[in-house]
Design a protein around this nucleic acid. Structure first.
Length: 443
RNA sequence: GCCCCCAUGGUGUAGCGGUAAGCACGACGGCCUUUCACGCCGUUAGCGCGAGUUCGACUCUCGCUGGGGGUACCA
């Protein structure tokens, strides 16, 4: 089994493309196949080294590895010319200067039931000759048969007048040359498949197994795009999602794996993946669900590993302690700084929190008392801090929150933070007392 | 316009002729609790419509409607 994945080199690895890559990788892993990565670069404008680099980087981040490639489509130009000549010579293709308008005019006079058929000319673009009768059937591993009657197909242009080839031609030739046996890609390619099949047939080449995956839509039902905020793997990464969660989510989005579970590693997904289980419905990208899964993966990370990823994500160092006590409170890497940034950057300015907690009746008194016990505490530690503060609660005859919240606001500036005992302990006695003093200071 | 694909709660899915239509996310309510989370409990909401086929349709067929994709000398 030889599979191939050919992302559009636009720079962003779209979620749909990422899922196609993932499914190809799962299949390759499951069946011991080979995954070939090809770069669609007949369009030189898009396939800049930067764009290709970004795609490769996103794939690497997802931990999707390929066995061969990336192979440049443009690199096989001589071979394309050779096949073109042969098709021209044996009458499977012909040259024509017909334009898109000519095709429209043809349809207008012949009716919609007739695909465009041009008259051979000495020069011009190369069109593939579609048989007048019959149909081309796409046998699709996920959706069955899709039949395309030839009378509805226009003779497709397979090469420009300047000799450069077009996608539908290049992809068919390249897949054949690369010995590709399975083509798993997005549904947007389904309608183009008969053209590719016709090229293969004209070449006398066998057809690979096709599988077209449903598209991924935005919340508005439209095709997912930048407008939706997170249309690419790179954006998800920037938003603090874990690659494990993205892989898990993308896999789940298009196929049922096990009704009893929903959290799967790449290896577990590979064990269960089957094209037959891929759904035919287009799916709507649901960031909420992704966040949910991300939270699960995030919490399953060893503390040191989470710290490492947070440091990489934020570009800050020394996050281990804060990471550990924040782990069960954050869903994405991005959630970390708003919650625990105060450890490093000082208390945030939150006038509302101050007013509500510190200026409330008894707020300052409790804080002052807490300062007193913390100053005396020996030794300094989470357990000791907890007993001391709880003892204070007891003594003052107030609710736990009446003591804890003022302390929280004093050290963090806000009413939300990791556990208060852990936070105070992590901050250290000097810094904790300093912050409390600052909060207590008038004005 | 023409061609192709798709259709289970707001979202993702399970279901493959007989079910009280299951699970998950979300939302809502509650418990837990030092905040926020986590965890736990409960509630909410679904088979697009119309004909068939059948003793019996979410499940099969056809039509309609709706959504999506394609229709480039783009990929």
């Amino acid at each position: 089994m030889r599979l191939r994945f050919a992302p559009s080199p636009t720079g962003a690895l779209h979620l749909g493309g990422a899922r196609a890559a993932l499914y190809n990788a799962l299949l390759a892993r499951r069946h011991g196949g080979t995954l070939v990565l090809r770069i669609e670069d007949t369009d030189r404008e898009r396939s800049t080294p930067e764009n290709v680099g970004q795609i490769l980087d996103a794939l690497r981040w997802l931990d999707i590895s390929y066995d061969e490639g990336p192979i440049s489509q443009a690199a096989s130009a001589p071979r394309h010319a050779e096949v073109l000549e042969r098709l021209l010579a044996d009458g499977h293709a012909y040259r024509s200067n017909a334009t898109a308008d000519d095709v429209k005019a043809f349809k207008a006079t012949h009716g919609s039931g007739h695909g465009f058929r041009g008259d051979p000319e000495d020069r011009g673009a190369v069109r593939l000759r579609v048989p007048d009768a019959g149909e081309t059937v796409v046998h699709d591993a996920v959706r069955g048969e899709a039949r395309f009657a030839h009378v509805h197909l226009d003779d497709p242009v397979i090469a420009r007048a300047d000799g450069s080839v077009l996608y539908n031609f290049a992809v068919a030739v390249d897949d054949y040359d690369a010995g590709i046996t399975h083509v798993v890609r997005g549904e947007d390619h389904l309608s183009n498949t008969p053209k590719q099949l016709l090229v293969l047939e004209a070449m006398g080449a066998p057809a690979p197994v096709y599988a077209h995956l449903p598209l991924i839509h935005g919340p508005d039902g439209k095709k997912l795009s930048k407008r939706h905020g997170a249309a690419s793997v790179q954006e998800l990464r920037a938003q603090g999602f874990l690659p494990e969660a993205v892989v898990n989510y993308l896999a789940l989005l298009g196929a049922g794996f096990d009704p009893e579970r929903e959290v799967f590693s790449f290896a577990e997904l590979a064990e269960r993946f089957a094209l037959e289980n891929v759904t035919r419905n287009p799916a709507v990208f649901d960031e909420q669900k992704l966040r949910h899964l991300n939270g699960i993966w995030l919490r399953s990370l060893p503390a040191e590993e989470l710290a490492r990823r947070l440091e990489e994500h934020t570009g800050r160092r020394g996050l281990a302690g804060a990471a550990e006590i924040s782990q069960e409170k954050i869903q994405t890497l991005e959630d970390f700084w708003p919650l625990a940034g105060f450890f490093f950057d000082g208390p945030v300015e939150d006038a509302k929190a101050r007013a509500k907690v510190l200026e409330a009746p008894g707020g300052r008194e409790r804080l002052a008392e807490a300062r007193g016990v913390l100053a005396e505490l020996e030794p300094w530690g989470t357990g000791g801090i907890e007993s001391a503060l709880r003892e204070l609660v007891e003594r003052a005859g107030v609710r736990p929150r009446d003591v804890f919240q003022p302390v929280r606001v004093a050290i963090a500036g806000t009413t939300v933070s990791p556990g208060i005992f852990e936070s105070v302990a992590l901050l250290g006695r000097d810094e904790a007392l300093a912050r409390i003093d600052r909060a207590l200071a008038p004005g």
